[in-house]
Design a protein around this nucleic acid. Structure first.
Lengths: 343, 343
DNA sequence: TCAGGTAACCAAACCGTTTTGAATTTTGCA
DNA sequence: TGCAAAATTCAAAACGGTTTGGTTACCTGA
């Protein structure tokens, strides 16, 4: 059933039927009701392809998830982020077009997405330091929102981000207040923006307490259980071992916890851990009581915010460079305690 | 730059230019070269919206990922699956349209995807026992491929699946051969098809050895670290504790390992673990040496296969009900060893 | 030389909507 | 009652490609 058939059945012109269904005012209520009823009765669904061509809008948002050749990892938070964003899109009648692209082809992907008119806007994932995508998208004049920020990019652009710096500063201060002085940072790869900011927050706090940063206590690596384990194990084996760990993800935290227990120590008593918890649906930090003390911020909520922002920019109801900085909560769990007395 | 402009620049008709670019034979080589060169020079990209309307094909595949209200979990394997599938789509010039939908709206989503012509085919994720989606899609006549199978569905349909039953049978037999007699199964939720098959494989092996199945050694739950930990802890505390665990995911395995170590036991010596390893990019089972003995099967590869199969069905070059059963490898890691002698 | 075939190209129709500009009907008011 | 204004409705033109059904020019062979 298409518009022409439907309008023919009703003895009306396609124009009127289209207007009736799209809520235009220049159609009488009586007619509108008739049309709506008939549309429903015949299960008329307007053809997306035609709408898109006629309106020029793609009614779709693109998510371009980079797949780094270097580490071949699909960002594990993106599933939840997209779940949040998708909620908003479907509410607004938009589709979500997903491209997972090796970073070498990224530029081409954006260019094509634009010149072929496949999407009306784009969400940028995993921004790096001085991310060149921002300049590219600005040049192409595609509406876009970055999930995160790109340190070093001086151009204005829209983003939704967690206050990583403040979160890690606060977490570090919390540990300092508990008497910890040797605090390790097990961070993500530091060409990713969030990792840079987290380190900065960590350093801010140390500096604020007049403590020097020990390069041996800071690592930047892929965020896997194994890496968490290895780095923690190595650090714990050293003469001047840390008494606390700050971990950039839950999964690292699991590895660190294992290293602690392997060393015959007890987490929360001998060694403290704070993780950053993205509230991933398949990786909960305990159900009722949190396992780890954590800086917590929902990635799914970030997805919702970013989507809403982008839709606003596309509809031109939001100002074009918009920003949203989400604050992380500090959740106290069982993984932190006062620093043990020096022996 | 659109087709009309380009053809005007070339002094040719849109027809000829379109044909030249799409490789039709009724255009001279000389002309084709000129056209291709001009298209490249002016960076002409045909408008997706117009192609779609003109050809009637959506040039897009839909992935509908159910979001269960019951457990609110986005399937964590779907990111890697989609990474594999996406590779194939972009090669074929297809887009990937993603819908993450609360399962209550699933039916409606499929119906609309079809009647509005948004996609040419669909991948069905996380099939359940007697999944009603299969009948629905068949009725709607949308080409589709299921990732997994739906026990109880007697209609023929296309799928790509791992031989979960055989994998878990083999893993159980491996443990039996090592002398284990009390083997626990920490499974996923058993309304999901894969979990049903895994349990069946496990039971097959026990039965093959004339061993009774102990209901106390079988649990079915969400696959989280915490649940792995809790269930293992509970089982280990019992008088007749298991000497080996079979875990439906890596993440469960991490929890079980923690419970083992918490109990002062050593994995691989006192208690054995075998996990199923989907080779998720962000959750590697060790880098060089596997941590866990595992039944291994790449979810990303499954994504590639499913996508290829679906594209074939859409293009009508593949038979419509096609099947692909992937065998899992049994990888020997450090988490298994001979059953300890009874005290 | 001419009929018939073929290679190369083109005009116009089509895909199913929205939107523009105009025509028709109804209403309100003098 | 008549007429301008407002309310409805409609025909036709987009949107930007593909496809159908020709047309033209050039060969080929009798």
């Amino acid at each position: 059933m298409n518009l022409k058939e439907l309008s023919h059945k009703l003895g009306l012109s396609p124009t009127t039927v289209s207007r009736a269904l799209n809520g235009y005012p220049e159609v009488s209520e009586a007619t509108r009701e008739k049309v709506v009823a008939a549309a429903r009765r015949h299960n008329y669904q307007p053809n997306t392809k035609a709408i898109r061509l006629a309106t020029g809008r793609a009614m779709a948002v693109g998510h371009v998830v980079p797949l780094s050749n270097r580490h071949e990892i699909v960002n594990p938070i993106f599933a939840d982020f997209i779940a949040g964003a998708g909620e908003m899109y479907s509410r607004a009648g938009y589709d979500l077009t997903l491209s997972i692209v090796p970073d070498a082809q990224e530029t081409r992907t954006y260019r094509e997405l634009h010149s072929r008119g496949t999407v009306d806007g784009v969400i940028v994932h995993s921004p790096l330091e001085n991310d060149r995508r921002i300049a590219l998208l600005q040049e192409l004049e595609i509406p876009f929102v970055v999930h995160g920020r790109a340190t070093g990019s001086e151009l204005p652009y829209s983003w939704v981000d967690v206050n990583n710096r403040r979160a890690f500063k606060r977490a570090t201060e919390f540990l300092l207040d508990l008497g910890h002085r040797r605090i390790a940072l097990i961070n993500g790869l530091e060409f990713m923006d969030f990792a840079i900011r987290r380190r900065r927050g960590y350093l801010d706090a140390l500096e604020g307490h007049g403590l020097p940063a020990d390069p041996d206590l800071m690592v930047s690596d892929e965020m896997t259980e194994t890496h968490g384990y290895r780095h923690a194990q190595r650090m714990l084996a050293r003469p001047n071992a840390p008494t606390a760990f700050l971990c950039s993800s839950m999964i690292i935290g699991l590895g660190v916890r294992r290293a602690i227990e392997d060393a015959g120590l007890k987490m929360g008593r001998d060694i403290s851990i704070i993780i950053h918890d993205d509230e991933l649906s398949y990786m909960r930090n305990g159900d009722d009581v949190p396992i780890f003390t954590a800086t917590r911020s929902s990635v799914r909520e970030a997805g919702r915010r970013a989507a809403t922002m982008l839709l606003g920019i596309i509809a031109k109801t939001s100002p074009s460079p918009s920003h949203e900085l989400l604050e992380a909560d500090l959740i106290i769990g069982q993984s932190t305690g006062p620093a043990p007395k020096a022996p």
